[in-house]
Amino acid sequence: MRWTAVLAVLAATGASAQTVVHINQPPPPEPAVGFLFELKMGTFVPRVGDEPGLTSNPYETIFGNKSMLYGGGEFAFIAWHGYGAVSVGFAAGYAEKYAPAIIQRTGELSTEKTALILFPLRLPVAYRFDVTWSRWGIPFVPYFKTALLATPWRVTKGGRTEVVNGQSGAGLKWGYGFTFGVAFILDVLSKQMAKDLSTDTGIRHSYIFGEYNVDQLNDFGKDTLNLSARWFTFGLGFEF
């Protein structure tokens, strides 16, 4: 913008006295606060076999070490916007994996399905280094999150919660996690569309992102069902 103004003034200097000089107004400053909404998906393999004392990895035995499919969303409040932005949020998702149960007597696959079903919840605090876009015009914004995790889980067999020796295969798993990600600001693709979107819907920015999650989900280090994972998520986000 400033370069445009300088060039216009320089051009005016060398032109006739009647030349009108147009100076573009600077863009409005970024609001101090705002909201983020993200939709994301990914796949992961829970590290069930990392539990100390297991004689085998039951996840690998049943599901063949194939990934669980995850889909979810995150809503965050931008609490501070200065040199970067800090947000606090809430994320919820769903992940499942189905496979045939194993016949005890023969070891063959049963016609009955068993499933591991997760409802991952997290309370993340994030720092986004969005100076890259707001000041330097680079459409990549790196960010970091740390989160408290709580994951209700359930194991089913034949559509019902599996019970073994009176113990029901369902519970709530606690943990913490870290996320490292990069967002690509879509505004750069069409500034006019981004402006129209902001005017019409209040969405100031839209972006796609990829992130790497390090989740420790074993009740803060207890020797229990370990649903920890290292995994990638990808998605679409909106700032408004």
Binding site: V48, E51, G53, L54, T55, S56, N57, P58, Y59, T61, I62, F63, A99, A101, I102, I103, Q104, R105, T106, S110, E112, T114, A115, L116, V155, T156, K157, E162, V163, V164, N165, Q167, S168, G169, A170, G171, L172, K173, W174, D219, F220, K222, D223, T224, L225
Partner: peptide
Amino acid sequence: PEASNGFWAEYKAAGGHEAGGCNAS
């Protein structure tokens, strides 16, 4: 009919310590 192991039974058979329920720290 044949008895079969789902993931939970396989986990317990492998010596898993999880008891289910809410293990709120």
